[in-house]
């Protein structure tokens, strides 16, 4: 589903509270042959329109009127696990970007990226690839190191393999997947898989933490 039919244009939804931005992104996407099925100016609109519009990719600004980008990401992925979320943020790599990635976003781009970069990112995310910036890779590395200090969860989700760490470090140092593949003598696909795995572990760990928290707080009905 996520790969889609090559003939079928990718369905995209744009969520941004800045009308000028929303229009610019929408125009660029439409001009490049994407099918912009919905736009929204805030989290409420986004979640109201998402089920009907069924976009394959949601291009999402993090700083939107409530519910915020992180909450929208979590809800979108819950409603349709095959939908991809590409975060577009003006304020740079911060904790909320990491939170959005933990909630299920698979791509992240700063708004100062060129429109060619944006189109490429939407294309890659729609194919199921991950789009990382070096800054985000640094945050994710830091997050896994913090998990090592925390009590172990024994589910393997809180640990990266040596190879995954190596790949992520190279991403954080600004190497493209192609450069990493050359440096480590791997296929481009393998590098991509390693990066995807780190994200998957992060998201899994996040879910495990949330569940554990829910059980501890007695919010989990099945536990009673």
């Amino acid at each position: 589903m996520s790969d889609g039919d090559a003939q079928q244009p990718v369905r995209v939804m744009v969520v941004d509270d800045h009308p000028m931005w929303r229009d610019a992104v929408e125009r660029d996407l439409a001009a490049a042959g994407f099918d912009v099925v919905a736009v929204a100016a805030n989290g409420t609109e986004a979640l109201a329109r998402f089920p009907a519009a069924r976009p394959g990719v949601v291009v999402l600004d993090l700083q939107i009127p409530a519910p915020n980008g992180v909450e929208v990401t979590a809800e979108v992925v819950r409603l349709d696990p095959s939908a991809r979320v590409l975060i577009l943020s003006a304020s740079g790599e911060q904790d909320d970007v990491l939170d959005a990635v933990k909630a299920g976003a698979t791509g992240y781009l700063v708004k100062s990226a060129s429109s060619a970069e944006l189109l490429d990112a939407v294309r890659r995310v729609s194919r199921g690839d991950t789009v990382f910036t070096p800054g985000l890779a640094g945050l994710v590395l830091g997050e896994f190191r913090r998990m090592l200090d925390a009590p172990p969860s024994d589910d393997g989700s809180s640990r990266l393999t040596e190879r995954e760490t190596e790949v992520l470090r190279l991403v954080a140092k600004g190497l493209s997947y192609k450069q990493i593949a050359e440096r480590l003598v791997l296929s481009h696909r393998t590098v991509q898989n390693h990066v995807q795995n780190t994200l998957r572990k992060l998201q899994l760990h996040n879910r495990v933490q949330l569940t554990r928290y829910a059980i501890e707080q007695g919010l989990d009905d099945e536990d009673e």
Partner: peptide, 8 residues
């Protein structure tokens, strides 16, 4: 320069 930090 692009700078990546652990965030903490």
């Amino acid at each position: 320069v692009s700078v990546a930090t652990p965030g903490t």
